[in-house]
């Protein structure tokens, strides 16, 4: 079987979930169908058996990823409409990723003495109508797997949007929509109308209570905990690969927050380093939360170097670094001494 790592070429049908995966590369072990050294492309598709081997075997992180991925229950679990005055982002959150299928951005005249308020209200009316249309098109409100529809905004726009949706559903006699709105909608307050407020949505009590089991909810809560810890006790919240490694060596990590981006590094040594770190933390009874960078919380962790840790006991970064340096010097001195002794 040809088994050379090749460039994974995603199906170009963007947006839609890819139904097949092209893998190409030169053949390194010949058989009767393919010649040695020939370039070959394989299509991996659903319902077709495939066996992928790695020279040194699969690491624990990769295996747990696969375990997670084969849990049944696909599709979006939560839909969210993040809106402000004149802007709305429709988001679909599933286990491993957030997609934003649609955005609305229109300028609504603000209230002004010269122009009166009628332009403002007309603009708002148009905006709500557009939200309604996009809602029908982009939110699979009928899907049974969809557990909640979150309408989030600062101010009271979420109430106005919800009222408009309900009124319009009633007017059109759209029973399924009415039902979905009644049963699934949660209105959540956020502080700004940007998509990154999704993190706020996920940690709000209304939503986190509903989604306690969902992975992405856990990520949001963990990230929030890290930042809170950073505020209350700087010595128990560390970030950055070097610092976290030091903490890990001292067995201080209670919760490790790590982005899956780090495991996609093209350098196998880097990948192995992080795998080893995850395993070390797990073996000491620490919790490891792997963030998906396809979620907003994962993006934020990526900004924060992609790795962070909440420690079980306070450690001063500077003290640890000083110790480390001393040790290093000590080691050098000893090596020097040995070298001297030998010569």
């Amino acid at each position: 079987m040809p088994s050379q790592e090749g460039a994974g070429d995603q199906n170009p049908s963007g947006g839609m979930p890819a139904a097949s995966l092209h893998i190409s590369g030169p053949v390194i072990r010949e058989n009767q169908y393919v010649r040695m050294g020939a370039y070959h492309t394989l299509d991996i598709e659903p319902n077709r058996d495939v066996r992928i081997e790695k020279l040194e075997g699969w690491d624990s992180v990769a295996r747990s990823r696969v375990e997670e991925a084969i849990v049944p229950g696909r599709g979006a679990e939560v839909a969210a409409v993040v809106c402000g005055e004149g802007t709305a982002a429709f988001c679909l959150l599933s286990q491993h990723m957030t997609i934003v299928p649609h955005r609305i951005s229109m300028s609504i005249p603000r209230k002004a003495a010269a122009a009166g308020t009628s332009q403002h209200e007309k603009g708002l009316g148009k905006f709500y109508a557009q939200i309604f249309e996009s809602f029908l098109r982009h939110i699979p409100y009928n899907a049974p797997s969809l557990r909640a529809i979150v309408i989030a905004s600062p101010g009271w726009i979420r109430d106005a949007v919800f009222d408009y949706l309900s009124a319009e559903a009633l007017k059109r006699g759209d029973k399924p929509l009415q039902k979905a709105l009644k049963e699934k909608v949660l209105k959540v307050h956020i502080s700004s109308a940007h998509v990154h407020s999704l993190v706020e949505v996920l940690k709000s009590p209304e939503v986190s209570h509903q989604l306690k089991e969902a992975k992405f909810a856990k990520e949001g809560i963990a990230l929030d905990r890290f930042f809170k810890m950073l505020g209350s006790d700087e010595n128990r919240a560390w970030y950055g690969p070097d610092h976290v490694r030091l903490a890990s060596e001292r067995g201080a990590i209670g919760t490790l927050l790590i982005s899956d981006d780090l495991f996609r590094s093209s350098d196998p040594a880097t990948r192995k380093k992080y795998v080893a770190m995850v395993e070390a933390v797990q073996s000491k009874g620490g919790e490891v939360i792997m963030f998906s960078s396809m979620h907003e919380s994962g993006q934020q962790l990526n900004q924060l170097t992609g790795i962070a840790a909440i420690l079980t006991f306070p450690l001063d970064v500077e003290v640890v670094e000083a110790e480390e340096k001393e040790e290093e010097e000590e080691r050098k001195r000893r090596e020097q001494a040995e070298a001297d002794a030998e010569s």
Binding site: H194, V195, L230, G231, N302
Partner: peptide
């Protein structure tokens, strides 16, 4: 006077006149 200190990679919003944009 903030509770959580600013770290490298914090997600913030920058306000400049009537515009606000997400930033890091």
């Amino acid at each position: 006077d903030i509770q959580v200190p600013i770290t490298a990679g914090s997600s913030i919003e920058v306000y400049h006149h009537s515009r606000d944009v997400p930033a890091t």
